[in-house]
Design a binder for these strands. Structure first.
Length: 501
RNA sequence: AUGGAAUUAGUUCAGUUUGGUAGAAGGCUUGAUUUGGGAUCAAGAGGUCACAGGUUCAAAUCCUGUUUUCCCGACCA
């Protein structure tokens, strides 16, 4: 009986989806994916799979990054790697395995990560003398190495970064957002002074903010994590928080000031300028492939992925209409001009109908589409269409097409950023009591701004409302009230609260 | 954690109640005609029914265990 009801619901939803196929402006709703307003989680996986960003593997929580997904990661890598190097960082590679004793050296750290580490206990058929942890993060490896190579202030700073994958044995997994193995970058630096290390931690947070806002078109809130939410072993954690279309927040990058918490147990000592022995001051910072999930959930729509133009692996698709020689030649000419000017474009001259191609490239999120047909050539023009708002523009052939595309990408980027920012603002609420928080989160979730006294018991109270947590204590503080929203005692900070992925 | 749903063609699913020849759509291939929002016709290829046991003359179908996915929780980037 119950099963039959379920089946009925599925059938009726299919019917509903079909109704959605009606004309919508001059574009058609995509058949392949669920509407994001009907079922956001389903919409998300539909996009991951249909846009061929990733595929499932045979091991839970381990995804296959397909070419289109990996290309986005490569572009993110290019942006960050360049910036890291400009700021004096060097890339290194540490081993995949961490011996148990090494992991155990910093007690908060091991406590934080122990529940989710994967262990190697056998080599071939032989039990290992000491089991090896598959790195969940590499602080311990870096520290062990730093202790060996640093003796003097002249050896400092060491500014290292590594691109690698790490493993955390999560129970519940989701493509990009939470996988058991994920690709990331982890920076590890050691410094002579507290000031220098803290400056580094803040500087790297700005690097991430720049990536999000100027390449991914994702507005973010920067701030500091509370004691409860900080990285296991850090003095404090700085964070970049983004808000998704459905009002759920995503911790998108973090930068930790570790102080001497690791350098003491790992014995990373140096002789300072006053000829005294001192422990180094340390930072670590990272971001992961999860931000591909953020791109999907911030910009995507019911026709598929929408890629920000400055991170898209393919920026322009040229679609010739029909097979006339002049049309094909014009397409090739434009394609070549764009490619020569550092715009990644390609021609889709497959046998599919134009309508199919439009839908296909919209699914894949290609930022700009150029249509060239016989009618256009007769009028000495081409048509360009923006992925983000579907706006068509007729472009005379005698203008500078490269400049036109570059300008369009710049405007698109700004529009995408502003659209996301406006949505964030409409989903950010100032609350003065817990009832308000509950009302707002139950109807239209998002970020809640509220005052907090600094006590963990008040922080924990939020969990009762849909598992909310503090996201950060933002750098941009506002004095909303004198009292803590929860206990009514004197407030210390304004905190951003939310539901997290 | 516990719980619920699912797992059949590259995809979406039917077939399981009541064991008896492996199905549909769409996708793919080939050819022709097409091409400004998911084309039409014709022919063709494609499945160890997730895995491992068990019951049976006979298992996609019944039983047991496991895998992976989704939902609900707890944890985390």
């Amino acid at each position: 009986m119950f099963i039959k009801k379920e089946k009925f619901l599925i059938i009726s939803r299919t019917f509903f989806d079909k109704l959605y196929l009606r004309k919508w402006g001059n574009i058609m709703k995509n058949k392949m994916i669920t509407s994001r307003d009907i079922d956001f989680a389903k919409w998300y996986t539909d996009i991951v799979l249909n846009a061929r960003l990733a595929a499932y593997s045979n091991v839970k929580g381990c995804i296959i990054l397909e070419p289109k997904g990996y290309a986005i990661w490569e572009n993110i890598q290019k942006v960050l790697d360049k910036k890291f190097k400009e700021l004096g960082h060097q890339n290194v590679y540490m081993p995949l395995f961490i011996p148990e004793n090494l992991l155990n050296k910093e007690s908060d750290h091991v406590e934080g990560f122990a529940p989710e580490v994967a262990w190697v206990t056998k080599g071939g058929s032989k039990e290992l003398e000491e089991k090896l942890c598959v790195r969940p993060t590499s602080e311990t490896l870096f520290c062990d190495h730093f202790a060996k190579i640093v003796t003097s202030y002249r050896d400092l700073p060491k500014l290292y970064n590594q691109w690698c994958s790490v493993v955390r044995w999560e129970k519940e997994t989701r493509p990009f957002l939470r996988t058991r193995e994920f690709l990331w970058q982890e920076g590890h630096t050691i410094h002579e002074t507290k000031e220098e290390a803290e400056k580094e931690a803040y500087q790297m947070l700005e690097v991430y903010k720049d990536l999000f806002e100027n390449y991914l078109a994702i507005p973010v809130i920067t701030g500091q994590k509370t004691e409860k939410e900080k990285f296991a072993g850090a003095e404090y954690t700085l964070t970049v928080e983004a808000l998704m279309y459905n009002g759920v927040s995503l911790q998108s990058a973090t930068s930790h000031y570790l102080g001497q918490n690791f350098s003491i147990p790992f014995n990373i000592k140096f002789t300072n300028r006053n000829n005294e022995l001192e422990y180094v001051y340390q930072t670590s910072w990272g971001t992961t492939t999860r931000i591909i999930g953020a791109i999907i959930m911030v910009h995507g729509d019911d026709n598929g992925l929408v890629l920000p133009p400055f991170i898209a692996p393919q920026q322009v698709v040229i679609i010739p209409i029909g097979k006339e020689k002049e049309v094909i030649e014009k397409a090739k000419e434009i394609n070549q001009t764009l490619n020569e000017n550092n715009i990644v474009s390609f021609i889709d001259d497959s046998d599919k109908t134009p309508g199919f191609k439009f839908a296909e490239h919209e699914m894949n999120g290609i930022p700009i589409r150029i249509e060239i047909g016989p009618k256009d050539l007769a009028n000495n023009q081409i048509i360009i269409v923006r992925r983000d708002n579907y706006k068509k523009e007729v472009i005379p052939l005698d203008i500078d097409i490269v400049q036109k595309i570059k300008d369009t990408m710049t405007i698109m980027h700004k529009d995408m950023f502003n659209k996301a920012k406006e949505r964030n603002e409409s989903k950010t609420y100032v609350c003065r009591n817990m009832q308000e928080v509950e009302d707002v989160m139950k109807t239209n979730p998002g970020f809640v701004k509220a005052m907090w006294c600094g006590k963990e018991e008040c922080e924990t109270k939020f969990k009762e409302i849909k598992g909310m947590k503090s996201r950060c204590i933002p750098f941009e503080q506002e004095q909303l009230d004198d009292k803590c929203i929860c206990c009514g005692k004197k407030a210390k900070h304004m905190v951003i609260w939310g539901i997290q992925y």
